[in-house]
Design a protein around this nucleic acid. Structure first.
Lengths: 137, 137
DNA sequence: CTGTATCCCAAAGGATACTG
DNA sequence: CAGTATCCTTTGGGATACAG
């Protein structure tokens, strides 16, 4: 806020910042990454455990998201060569640091959930947006 | 996107949390929302200013993103009936609170940027993922 | 200046079936 | 148990042209 920046012209304090935030978001983007990250942050979790802990996720998306998180170094994957196979996933230290930011986001969402719902309702009432309004095509 | 959760059975430590985070993320999701939010947070900005401040954005996406943010009560839109028309956008108080969380995310991203890049490189070297590997189809 | 309207493509994600 | 493979639908978003 109090940055004394009264007008926006070219790069000033926005391009670089938004770019960085975009980078941050790109890693945790997708419908499931965060749910997985939060679940994996309180102890190791197995594939099926995650599948149950993140309701609605498909095996495919769980695998894909897990792989991406692993690739970025946010999740570690440990395979135990037992039978039946056992694989443990857990958040890395780097992801643990992210966790607090995610929590901040959660807190914000909880605090403003109703306010946002009201804002939407009001908006849709003023501008006739019938809940299924198509912004695109 | 808006279906996913068919029914909520219990609450296996994470469901509620991940759901809330998802809600948070859904409002600021998309390629441009955050850049706009950050730019609108240090004073009112006009349409064209934002267009220039967020490099790469198209008129269409700027409009769409702005409308969604307005709908959620994160951006206020003020029209001056002058000629030529003038419209000012600015982050609301609610969005200002989000701003700090976004900043936390930015900070995290900056601190770990290299580490993540290295993790990717390492991963791609071990598992032969030739930079353009297609996770899907 | 501030948008809208189309068209089109690519990516995300769901459903389902099969496997070591 | 822990995934893969395929197919298909939906959504995000770029390009471009038109308009109040």
């Amino acid at each position: 806020m109090s940055q004394g920046n009264t007008h926006v012209s070219q790069d000033p304090a926005g391009e670089r910042a938004s770019c960085t935030v975009l980078e941050a978001l790109n890693r945790i983007s997708g419908k499931w990454a965060i749910g997985i990250l939060l679940n994996g942050s309180h102890g190791p979790a197995r594939f099926t455990e995650l599948e149950r802990a993140v309701p609605g996720i498909s095996r495919r998306m769980l695998t894909l998201t897990l792989r991406n998180l692993e690739r970025d170094g946010l999740i570690s994957r440990t395979v135990y060569a037992t039978v039946p196979p056992k694989v443990e996933y857990r958040a890395t230290a780097m992801a643990d640091e992210l966790h607090s930011s995610l929590t901040a986001l959660t807190t914000w969402a909880e605090r403003h959930r109703e306010m946002i719902a009201d804002a939407r309702e009001a908006y849709d009432r003023e501008h006739g947006t019938p809940a299924g309004a198509d912004a695109d095509r």
